[in-house]
Design a binder for these strands. Structure first.
Lengths: 133, 133
DNA sequence: AGAAGTACTTACCCTAAAGTATGCATATCA
DNA sequence: TGATATGCATACTTTAGGGTAAGTACTTCT
């Protein structure tokens, strides 16, 4: 007789956690290393897929698309495609995506205050930080 | 001719990313599902190890300790132990740990505004949210 | 004598996330 | 003719992280 595992314990624990912890609820949406970077890059406005790729060179196509889909499913961004050849697809932040700005901003502040040597580079990034939509 | 892999590509990519992205720098410190919850629970003040365990029932001891160590190494919290039996160990946020408050707060705001059904529960949590140190 | 509490540690396994590599469809450009 | 660009999809492999279970050291409580 084989015991069937209905769901991973990790998932159950995570569910438990984010039901009463707003912070974990957010991590469910933007947790992982790449999602915040993607959102960060979209704060400055709508971008084509290829532009995103160029501005985040270290990410692989598979992971980028995967995350874009998840972010779209979670309602954080909007995908628009024109049925032309070659394809023309753009991504932009949705309403709730834009509401992430204060979170990302607070993170950026923390980073500049707590990164030692790196802080200068971050401060430079902060200059381009789109302050308001 | 054999190509030798010197280090994992994941790590290299992450390094690349957080050198120029403050947001990813932060995710390196508090990324993962449990760390924000731990910090959240310490916002209200110093806690013993066993108190943390009770307030986060879903986490296993191994993972809790593992994360506490990482957070300590990253300078986000301070561990103090009294050499008594039974052991008496407390954890509290360091200066940079306390500076995470605006990040967690912005997350909590986002969660209450973007969680539909769950928002009421989050709003309840927000009442206890330690606004200032 | 033995159970319980405290703050861990260690060993082993399993899964989810990430990386690598390749393919596809179509049109335009050289 | 075939190279290039675009936005993906798919199959396979590797790695990091998390889960389970058990043990430790010492004391106080029963």
């Amino acid at each position: 007789m084989t015991v069937v595992k209905e769901a991973s314990t990790i998932q159950e624990n995570k569910t438990q956690a984010f039901v009463n912890c707003p912070v974990t609820f957010v991590m469910e949406k933007i947790g992982g290393y790449w999602k915040p970077i993607i959102l960060f890059n979209l704060l400055s406005g709508t971008k084509r897929y290829s532009e995103l790729k160029k501005s985040i060179p270290a990410i692989t196509e598979k992971v980028l698309i995967q995350h874009l889909k998840q972010l779209e499913n979670d309602g954080l961004l909007i995908r628009r495609s024109k049925p032309v050849v070659p394809p023309y697809v753009t991504y932009e932040l949705s309403k709730s995506g834009k509401e992430m700005r204060p979170v990302l901003y607070a993170m950026a502040i923390w980073a500049t205050n707590n990164s030692g040597k790196l802080s200068k580079g971050f401060a430079r990034q902060m200059k381009d930080f789109p302050a308001e939509k």
